[in-house]
Amino acid sequence: MSRPAAPLPPRDTVAAHNRHLGRRGEELAARHLTSLGMVVLDRNWRCDAGEIDLVLRDGRVLVICEVKTRSSRDYGDPVEAVDRRKADRLRRLGVRWLLAHSCHPDDVRVDLVGVLAPPGGPVEVEHVEGVG
């Protein structure tokens, strides 16, 4: 005889968990990138066109960074979540950030940090430079 499926947690509980996981991933990504010598200029910058997770300086290059955090690989690797369309959107958001901050870097790059943070397991951080 089969057992009934376990009840799903309330939506607000799932949303709170996802927000917490996302914040944790962004913090881990920022620590990783600063350990490489980058400087965080902004976090969770928003405008009417969207949000940039991290804006950093890597020497004279402005880095627009998307952070994808997952607790498992059940739905794919975190870095697989950013396709060309998302990378193009991040570039457009980068231009908006530059205009809002009157910043004139030598170059702009879009990076991706994938964070895999399984409950009770080791955290993996993958940094991909120049996506899309």
Results as ranks from 00 to 15, higher is better:
residue 2 S to I: 05
residue 2 S to P: 05
residue 3 R to E: 01
residue 4 P to W: 08
residue 5 A to I: 11
residue 6 A to K: 10
residue 6 A to P: 00
residue 7 P to F: 04
residue 7 P to Q: 07
residue 8 L to N: 00
residue 8 L to R: 10
residue 8 L to T: 00
residue 8 L to E: 03
residue 9 P to E: 03
residue 12 D to K: 12
residue 13 T to Y: 05
residue 17 H to S: 11
residue 17 H to T: 02
residue 17 H to L: 12
residue 18 N to T: 11
residue 19 R to E: 10
residue 24 R to C: 08
residue 25 G to D: 11
residue 26 E to F: 11
residue 27 E to V: 09
residue 27 E to T: 15
residue 27 E to F: 13
residue 27 E to I: 14
residue 27 E to S: 13
residue 28 L to A: 15
residue 30 A to G: 02
residue 31 R to K: 11
residue 31 R to F: 03
residue 31 R to D: 13
residue 33 L to N: 07
residue 35 S to R: 06
residue 35 S to P: 00
residue 36 L to T: 04
residue 37 G to R: 07
residue 38 M to E: 08
residue 38 M to G: 00
residue 39 V to N: 01
residue 40 V to M: 03
residue 41 L to R: 15
residue 42 D to W: 03
residue 44 N to F: 03
residue 44 N to K: 12
residue 46 R to T: 14
residue 47 C to E: 09
residue 47 C to W: 11
residue 48 D to P: 04
residue 50 G to N: 06
residue 50 G to C: 06
residue 52 I to T: 10
residue 55 V to H: 07
residue 56 L to F: 00
residue 56 L to K: 01
residue 58 D to E: 08
residue 59 G to W: 01
residue 59 G to R: 04
residue 61 V to W: 00
residue 61 V to E: 13
residue 62 L to I: 00
residue 62 L to P: 01
residue 62 L to E: 03
residue 63 V to T: 07
residue 65 C to G: 05
residue 66 E to D: 14
residue 66 E to H: 08
residue 66 E to M: 05
residue 67 V to T: 10
residue 70 R to H: 15
residue 71 S to P: 00
residue 73 R to V: 12
residue 73 R to H: 09
residue 74 D to H: 15
residue 77 D to M: 08
residue 77 D to Y: 06
residue 79 V to S: 06
residue 79 V to F: 03
residue 82 V to S: 13
residue 85 R to Y: 05
residue 85 R to N: 08
residue 86 K to R: 14
residue 87 A to F: 04
residue 89 R to H: 15
residue 89 R to E: 08
residue 89 R to P: 00
residue 90 L to R: 02
residue 90 L to M: 15
residue 93 L to F: 07
residue 93 L to P: 05
residue 96 R to G: 09
residue 96 R to H: 15
residue 97 W to E: 06
residue 97 W to P: 02
residue 98 L to D: 01
residue 99 L to A: 15
residue 101 H to N: 15
residue 105 P to H: 04
residue 107 D to S: 14
residue 108 V to T: 14
residue 108 V to E: 11
residue 110 V to Y: 08
residue 110 V to T: 13
residue 110 V to H: 08
residue 111 D to K: 08
residue 113 V to L: 07
residue 115 V to D: 10
residue 118 P to M: 04
residue 121 G to N: 08
residue 122 P to G: 15
residue 123 V to I: 13
residue 123 V to E: 10
residue 123 V to T: 15
residue 123 V to K: 07
residue 126 E to D: 09
residue 127 H to Y: 09
residue 127 H to A: 11
residue 127 H to I: 08
residue 128 V to H: 12
residue 130 G to C: 10
